[in-house]
């Protein structure tokens, strides 16, 4: 194996550690605040819809909603972590330190993605923990939940890296977040079951990869889902693999990063 192909384990671990320390250093902003915001959704939606809408037989709306909110937290925070870190580094120039180091595209990508998964998981688990104080908690298939949580964090972490590579200013990132990530999140079954949508919207929703991730995660928690969890996991894994390949290619080519 040539020196170029040898994995720089210490370099990868350092970059991962840096990414984790970066968001932990401002944990109030990156972990606590999103938890509180997500729990406000729980309070408001449950207050309005409890007793009027029940997508899952034998479960209250709050019990149905909690897995969706956990995943919403994972989605938004995994994306925010990689995208804001990389874009900030691009904007303030500190990305130079990473780019002049003997770090490959794979090492950089793994570090950013895993840090995004970790932050998404921390906020998601935090939301779940606090929500469990307010409503009954379930964890029917923990491995399914864990798998979907990891896949979702990875997918959004990768999307964050892509967005940060494309963006040339914070305004671009804001547009990506508000016009892509937010609609995909809100129209992915966080708050309702896709089967309860009008017929017209069901096939359109089926194109949203986040739908399968949330549905699969919900299956792991309460054992109820619109789709076969194994197929959802397959879709999610394929989506992550495609994103990983695309992002690796962008980083490997140095598109918008190296001259």
């Amino acid at each position: 194996m040539t020196a170029n192909k040898q994995f720089n384990t210490a370099g990868f671990a350092t970059l991962f550690e840096k990414e984790v320390r970066r968001f932990m250093r401002v944990a109030t902003q990156t972990v606590v605040t999103p938890m509180v915001t997500t729990l406000l959704y729980l309070l408001v939606f449950v207050q309005v819809l409890e007793g009027r809408y029940s997508p899952a037989v034998d479960f209250s709306y709050a019990e149905f909603l909690v897995p969706g909110l956990v995943m919403m937290a994972v989605i938004q925070n995994a994306f925010a972590n990689s995208s804001s870190s990389l874009l900030q580094a691009k904007m303030n120039g500190s990305i130079t330190f990473m780019l002049i180091a003997p770090l490959s595209a794979l090492e950089i990508l793994l570090a950013f993605t895993l840090a995004a998964v970790l932050r998404g998981a921390l906020v998601g688990v935090g939301v779940w923990g606090v929500a469990s104080l307010l409503t009954d908690w379930h964890l029917v298939e923990p491995l399914w939940s864990l798998a979907f949580l990891m896949l979702t964090g990875a997918a959004l972490g990768l999307l964050g890296v892509i967005a940060a590579i494309i963006a040339e200013k914070f305004d671009h990132m804001s547009a990506f977040q508000n016009f892509v990530i937010l609609p995909l999140t809100f129209l992915s079954g966080v708050f309702w079951s896709v089967s309860s949508l009008p017929e017209f919207w069901q096939p359109i929703s089926a194109l949203n990869p986040l739908l399968y991730m949330i549905d699969g995660f919900r299956y792991g928690m309460i054992g109820v889902s619109d789709f076969d969890p194994a197929r959802s996991a397959g879709f999610a894994a394929l989506f992550v693999a495609l994103l990983f390949g695309q992002t690796w290619w962008l980083l490997h080519r140095g598109w918008r990063l190296r001259g």
């Binding site: 720089n8 384990t9 210490a10 370099g11 671990a13 350092t14 970059l15 550690e17 840096k18 320390r21 970066r22 250093r25 401002v26 580094a89 303030n92 120039g93 500190s94 130079t96 330190f97 990473m98 002049i100 180091a101 003997p102 770090l103």
Partner: peptide, 28 residues
Amino acid sequence: VVPQELVFDPFFTVREVLALQAGYFGLK
């Protein structure tokens, strides 16, 4: 390489950025 622009990572202390830079190169 000492870059021309004053680029820095605002989150970390001087000692931390030095440790990170060594780490990127695979060094303790």
